[in-house]
Structure formats: structure tokens, C-alpha cells
């Protein structure tokens, strides 16, 4: 049994083809696996290892370094509340307490219905809009307790355009074949690019 669906397997090949070395596609492929399944399974890592020409231990090594890759199932909506300085100065601590009591879970936990995972997170590059949070890596700004409750209600009743956990960018890069310069392994490139040599080199 293959892990990736046929469509995603094709996409995986397209992604790998953009890099001079296949291993560079590792993080994008882990994201693709997480998009397909909601989290990163062992089967996914084994298949990614084959695709980029390494061992599954190496894939696990990379995967486990990065916070966003979940190696066990999480809620449909992962709510990350920023707890770094600017947000903390503007009430992130209270927001977190409110969230914990509203959802009935501690930071790091998931609701039994599988809908929400609550996490404390680090600076989300929205410090002027504190306190802020992300739902599946989409920002909500200057969140009050009431707004938090409303958000949870909207998400629970699917009244929101936030995609399920695992889906990141809903727009993919596509490089048209006739425009693609192509990825050459670095060892096969021996001379200056043509526009430099035309200009007399540098």
C-alpha cells in the first residue's frame, strides 16, 4: 500500500523536481503528508524516505525537529495562543486561562470530540495586534475572551473558511513546463550563467 494518493504522489514528484537535490523536498513533502492525513504517520515517513533517497530514520530526524509536524493525531483545529513578550504584556496569560476553561483542556491537550487542540505558541509576527492567536496557522488579532468564545462556536458549527489542520497554503506553486529553467545538480553546473558571460563575466 502506498501512502500518498495518486494525485499527491504526482505532486510530490513535481515538488522534488524543483530542487537540485531531492532531499531538499523533505519539509514540503512532510507538509503534504500532514495535509493528506492531518498528522505525519510512520508510513508517510517511510515513503518520503524512498522518494528523496534517504532512510526513514533521517526523515524522522528532520520531522521531529519542527514544531508544526505532529506525530500523533491532533484536533481538526489547532489553536495556538502566542505567549511571547508583546502578547504577554497585552494579556495573553488571561487569554490562555480563558481558553483552557472554555475548551476544558490544558495547553497541549485536545478536546475529546477531536475538534480542538490548544497550544501555547511563540511569537507569531503579529506583535502589534496582541494578544493574538492562530487557528491552523491563520491569524486572529487582538482577541478578547468574548471573541474567543465566538471563534470556537463558529469553528464548531463549521461557520468558518479555515481549512482543516494539515492544509497550509491553499494555493500551490505551479511552474509551467515551457518556462521552467530546470534544476541541475550543482556538480553539473560548471560555468557562469549565460547572462553573466555575455556581459563579460564577473
Amino acid at each position: 500500500m502506498k501512502f500518498f494518493t495518486e494525485e499527491n504522489a504526482e505532486l510530490a514528484q513535481e515538488i522534488i523536481g524543483r530542487y537540485p537535490k531531492p532531499r531538499s523536498a523533505m519539509i514540503p513533502l512532510l507538509h503534504l503528508a500532514q495535509e493528506q492525513e492531518g498528522w505525519v504517520t510512520d508510513e508517510a515517513m517511510t515513503e518520503i524516505a524512498e522518494l528523496v533517497g534517504t532512510t526513514s530514520a533521517e526523515v524522522l530526524g528532520t520531522c521531529s525537529f519542527y514544531e508544526m509536524f505532529k506525530r500523533k493525531p491532533v484536533g481538526k483545529y489547532v489553536i495556538n495562543i502566542c505567549t511571547t513578550m508583546s502578547c504577554a504584556l497585552m494579556g495573553a496569560g488571561d487569554l490562555m486561562k480563558h481558553a483552557e476553561s472554555r475548551l476544558g483542556v490544558k495547553s497541549g491537550g485536545s478536546t475529546p470530540d477531536g475538534l480542538f487542540t490548544l497550544e501555547g505558541a511563540e511569537c507569531q509576527a503579529a506583535c502589534t495586534e496582541a494578544p493574538c492567536l492562530q487557528v491552523n496557522y491563520r491569524h486572529q488579532y487582538r482577541v478578547t475572551p468574548d471573541q474567543f468564545d465566538q471563534l470556537v462556536e463558529d469553528l464548531a458549527s463549521s461557520d468558518s473558511d479555515i481549512p482543516e489542520h494539515g492544509v497550509l497554503s491553499q494555493i500551490r506553486q505551479h511552474i509551467p513546463a515551457d518556462k521552467f529553467v530546470g534544476s541541475t545538480p550543482p556538480e553539473d553546473v560548471v560555468s557562469a550563467p549565460v547572462w553573466l558571460s555575455e556581459a563579460g563575466g564577473q
Binding site: 531538499s24 514540503p28 506553486q173 529553467v181 550563467p193 549565460v194 547572462w195
Partner: peptide
Amino acid sequence: GKNILGSEFSVDIVLHWGAG
């Protein structure tokens, strides 16, 4: 991509993204 604005200049820009 290839031959940008009809010139000799050709380059790809590949979107890559991290994981936290």
C-alpha cells in the same frame, strides 16, 4: 523563468516553506 522579458536572463524562483 526562461528568457525573462525576452532577454538572456533566466532564473527560477522556488517557493519553499518551513515548519516551525
